[in-house]
Design a binder for these strands. Sequence first.
DNA 1: ATTCATTTTGTTAACGTGTGCATAAATTTA
DNA 2: TAAATTTATGCACACGTTAACAAAATGAAT
Lengths: 335, 335
Amino acid sequence: MAATIKDIARLANVSHTTVSRALNNSPLIKEVTKRKIMEIAREVNYIPNYNAKSLVLQRSHTIGLFFTSISTGTSSSFFAATIRGVNSVVGIGYNLFVRGIDDYEDFSTIHRKRFDGIILMSQSDADNEFIEHVLEQNIPLVVLNRLIPGGHFVNIVSNDREGSREAGRYLIEQGHERIAIIEGIKGFKSTEQRRAGFLEAIEQSGKTVPQEYRIAGDYTTESGHQAMRQLLQLQTPPTAVFCSNDDMAIGAMNAAYALGYKVPEDVSVIGFDDINFARYTNPALTTVKRPVEQISAHGAEKIMERIEEDANREELIFLETALMERQSAAARSGS
Amino acid sequence: MAATIKDIARLANVSHTTVSRALNNSPLIKEVTKRKIMEIAREVNYIPNYNAKSLVLQRSHTIGLFFTSISTGTSSSFFAATIRGVNSVVGIGYNLFVRGIDDYEDFSTIHRKRFDGIILMSQSDADNEFIEHVLEQNIPLVVLNRLIPGGHFVNIVSNDREGSREAGRYLIEQGHERIAIIEGIKGFKSTEQRRAGFLEAIEQSGKTVPQEYRIAGDYTTESGHQAMRQLLQLQTPPTAVFCSNDDMAIGAMNAAYALGYKVPEDVSVIGFDDINFARYTNPALTTVKRPVEQISAHGAEKIMERIEEDANREELIFLETALMERQSAAARSGS
DNA sequence: ATTCATTTTGTTAACGTGTGCATAAATTTA
DNA sequence: TAAATTTATGCACACGTTAACAAAATGAAT
């Protein structure tokens, strides 16, 4: 049914080698024959068989986009933004393959023959095993989102630490003294970075964050809700809360509302990520913008580059965050 | 470097044919030799070359998950829920390939050799061309989300019409008389279905929806915001608004809030989808739950089935929606 | 015209796997 | 024990493509 180069060869009265060369625009072939062959190829609606190509060329035309997990711990907006970013760059000449690392029991099926390159949206230290495997296989790699110095791959991250520092400073400047933090999933690098930046800002101002003002969340809306509930039921609740992502900030605002607290009058809330909905919460969420889509688009560009040149030197790229000042955080009202 | 069946054959002192059969568990091979070969294969860490396999077996081990568009018109939560659903079912023996139809200029690269099966999360009539192409190629197909009777494929949809009818009825029961609708993207089947169900409910109660109470949105939060703004600035604004998805409902509530209207006291809002955030808006969003993740998981199961048995009869599956009664819609306050 | 260099095309093998057919080995039957 | 049957293995080719090398065709130079 489907035409092959041999069919074309027969029609054009040449060898299939000539056809192959012509279609790949080899300089060895005369212009006229090239044109003739191209013409016939179009007529018979020729489509190259990528399996055959891959087999002989040892390339898969496949780019793997991996997440730490697809089912848990990855918020929808983050997930979607990442795929959008990558998709916008990777041409249809490539297969775009999406999976979670936790879908795999072992990594034996992840090897060079199957992936020309891999983009990892990394969220947890547990990914290191995967990274090592990929490097061992000599597959070009781009790791997004998690800072891992010293590896032989491209590493693109947003400066979460600086971003949360800015958020912390902002709350201090607004006159808050009792400031709490709702943290992300334990073990995630982002959790640590955001906590560190936030604490630095607070401590730099000479204040401290007591233990009961540090609540562990897990990046889900529900965990933000629970955490805020816990905070507001303390004897002396905080007047401002920094949430390690927007999902939790939305849950937190919801809890405040449910307990009769007003945001920002009674308690200020600040988030992290700047997801689409942040602009539309009531009040609109003040948050730290993280350029997820840029990061992933940039990652896609880099992986294409690496596939071409087959380099494996280290490359570290920082993208800056930005404080989006909206209405959920305000100056402390005199108490 | 990587071991092939020929390497194993050499080590086992048999032909590569025997190895191939042994690894595929053919009944032709003696148990002892089978075991010996398996053993060696494990030792040398053998991984089959899928390109070679695909080439000879004419199967790609790839499932394509297509959206109408990845960049526009698909909300993050919808997108993520779909991928999660599919991913939870498709084993790692398959490649999961994600793309938007609008990424393609022509569909020549979409053919049987490259896809064992295709799942289409369809949102627009414009997808029909794609569907036809896939059927022409004889690729097993599952179409989700959009009702297309009479095709030779599996069609899985939620009963949006009944869902919106229920939403409409609910508002009527709450005593509302001036009820508006914010519609989705023009041309999307879901837009039509939800509009139709809603209007049916209203008209069944003997009331009508004037033209100025029917605003076109495009499923984005921002469009919901704009639409609500427009509605509330009418001389006689509605007391209840049905939004064709949750994203727009969130935008709508935000607009109400911005204009000093209270939800649900001044205006009731009801959404569609039941995204994660719906529970956490203030007030929590009353909405129609649509089982996106189930739909896509079910779709994945069906496509695997179809790939095995290579059937192409029509199959139509409805999944029911459910009204989630929360706080954003209430009885009409006496005016 | 003959040789040499250059350009264009063809021959053949290779990539790693599966399978129809032939053959060898083991087992049963006569 | 020989023949017939069954069971286990190997040979050779196929899938569709690229590429090293060989060969033919063309053109230039003597």
